[in-house]
Design a protein around this nucleic acid. Structure first.
Length: 496
RNA sequence: GCUCCUGUGGUGUAGUUCGGUCCAUCAUACCGGGUUUUCAUCCCGGCGACCCGGGUUCAAAUCCCGGCAGGAGCACCA
């Protein structure tokens, strides 16, 4: 029997962008992006920023930037990362977060919440060692601590927060059903003891919440309606849902994305990058060999390309491998529109232009070339040819006929280029070049895998494009990083 | 070992909820051609996929069962 409704269904329609969220009756949408500030953002993090902020835009909702900085030992916060992340969030999403909070400055709230839950018997203090507990948990057995009365638990709790118990000596657990099929969820740990100082709040607190607890309490307090996160946090959702059940709270809608691997970068984690940066293996967090947002930005990526890229990927739970090329192709299309053209000559070779009959000329005057071939309204660049001394790349050098782009057909003999015709002859190879009168020495930083190349060359004058991305004729995109006192230009390579 | 997630072309992705309009969408990559005084941008064409095996059904990418493969969690990390 054919379902008559099926005939009206619109299938095979390409869904564009983000999926729809389930929206509550109040139409409220509150999301959060919650990184650990143990370093600035990586490319992977940018997915979280984009997805959450784009959902907020789509539903006129709010996004909270929350620093989950409750670990002082394994992944301790980096003080400078807070402001970097806040700034990067704004750059990537194009908007300021509606609220910025730090878990470390809200410790009183979490500790109070924990104490309340211990009093109600929802949580208990467990004095077992991690390995002892693991053994019991795996066999679905309760440890002795679980059965102790609330009064005893509160005494232990007080001792914990006063620093009377060493690290590892006790932990607060959420009491769950020990017969849960998933061992990860059985009496999961909520708070633990840390005596190492926190870089922001010092050693005022001896007991710190773990992610699952802190996040659970905070999401509820902030009225978060939707959580979008990596599927590696699925068990986190399950743990938190158990806690919400005990407290009779409503758990937010949760969506996941799968693991993303960028093929052009090896296995990087924020911790490992931090170590290398602090070791001096890299010039900084924005070293172009690094998969950090800072590096992409420095090279000249547009934030728009990141937004489009992640939105188009959507929220599939598949684990995927992405070549950087797919982000780059998006970026090229976006920045081509406003990237002025300039000439950069690698391995320069000096030539002298002469007139048709081979005479040297004292002053050729100037030629004018569009800053952008498709948008003449962007103006022209003036090339003063002076006495005719120019540079072409050694790689392009060959005796015989060739077209100097936007100028003339020439015949090269030795270091002389005789003008054959100003008009272009069809089928002549075209090369880029630069007049020595309005060019200067330049160096371009190029990341090649794990190596950095400083490519020396001669660069056409840039007149006022500091910080901008340019398209280098016949090469690709690069960004102007600076000009030294001596006039030497520094470039950084973006992509082809 | 226990628990969970995911399998559509080289890489991603749409379609799977509710079986038919799907000889399967779009992008990227690749190949070929066009425009262009750049190897850029732009335009046209081509290539190429439903993990495997059963089952249900007139009809399966879609539903059921069983495999297989990849990934994640089982941290007093986030």
């Amino acid at each position: 029997m054919t379902n008559p409704e099926a005939l009206n269904r619109e299938k095979q329609k390409k869904r564009i962008g983000l999926p729809d969220l389930e929206i509550g009756d109040d139409k409220n949408v509150i999301l959060r992006f919650a990184p650990n500030p143990n370093g600035p953002l990586s490319i992977g993090h940018s997915r979280g920023v984009v997805i959450n902020s784009e959902f907020a835009k789509k539903y006129s909702g709010k996004v909270i930037l929350r620093f989950d900085d409750t670990d002082t030992k394994v992944k301790p916060p980096l003080e400078s990362a807070y402001s970097m992340i806040e700034e990067e969030f704004e750059w990537i999403s194009g908007l300021k977060p509606d609220l910025v909070i730090r878990a470390s400055s809200r410790m009183e709230i979490y500790l109070e919440a924990a104490e309340g839950m211990i009093s109600r018997g929802i949580c208990y203090v467990c004095r077992c060692t991690a390995s002892e507990f693991k053994e019991l948990r795996d066999s679905k057995e309760a440890c002795v601590c679980r059965e102790r009365d609330v009064g005893q638990n509160i005494l232990d709790w007080k001792m914990m927060i006063e620093g009377g118990i060493d690290e590892g000596g006790a932990v607060v657990r959420v009491k769950t059903d020990l017969n849960l099929p998933n061992p990860a969820l059985r009496d999961w740990p909520a708070l633990r003891i840390q005596h190492t100082a926190h870089p922001i709040v010092g050693n005022r607190y001896k007991v710190w919440p773990l992610l699952d607890f802190q996040s659970a309490v905070e999401d509820h307090l902030q009225g978060v309606t939707h959580i979008v996160r990596g599927k590696d946090l699925m068990d986190s959702t399950r743990k938190q849902t158990l806690l919400y059940g005990l407290l009779d709270w409503d758990y937010p809608q949760t969506l996941y994305w799968g693991r993303v691997k960028l093929l052009d970068f090896g296995g990087f984690s924020t911790s490992s990058i931090r170590k290398s940066v602090e070791n001096g293996d890299y010039s900084g967090w924005d070293d172009p060999r690094l998969p950090t947002v800072a590096a992409l930005r420095r090279r000249g990526f547009s934030s728009e390309s990141l937004r489009e890229f992640w939105v188009e990927l959507g929220l599939s739970q598949k684990d995927i491998s992405i070549p950087m090329q797919s982000i780059e192709s998006k970026n090229s299309k976006i920045i081509d529109r406003y990237s002025e053209r300039r000439s950069f000559i690698e391995s320069p070779k000096k030539l002298y232009i002469t007139s048709e009959n081979g005479d040297k000329i004292d002053n050729f005057g100037s030629i004018f070339i569009n800053r952008h071939p498709d948008y003449p309204e962007m103006g022209e660049r003036e090339w003063d040819l002076g006495d005719g001394s120019i540079f072409i790349s050694e790689n392009d050098y060959t005796e015989g006929l060739i077209r100097l782009k936007d100028f003339a057909d020439v015949e090269i003999k030795g270091d002389i280029a005789v003008i054959i015709s100003r008009e272009k002859t069809d089928d002549l190879p075209i090369i880029h070049w630069v007049s020595s009168k309005n060019s200067t020495e330049a160096v371009m930083i190029v990341a090649r895998g794990s190596e950095i190349d400083n490519v020396e060359g001669i660069m056409e004058n840039i007149d006022g494009n500091l910080g901008q991305t340019l398209q280098l004729e016949r090469m690709g995109f690069a960004r102007i990083e600076g000009i030294s006192d001596s006039g030497r230009i520094s470039l950084i390579w973006l992509h082809g």
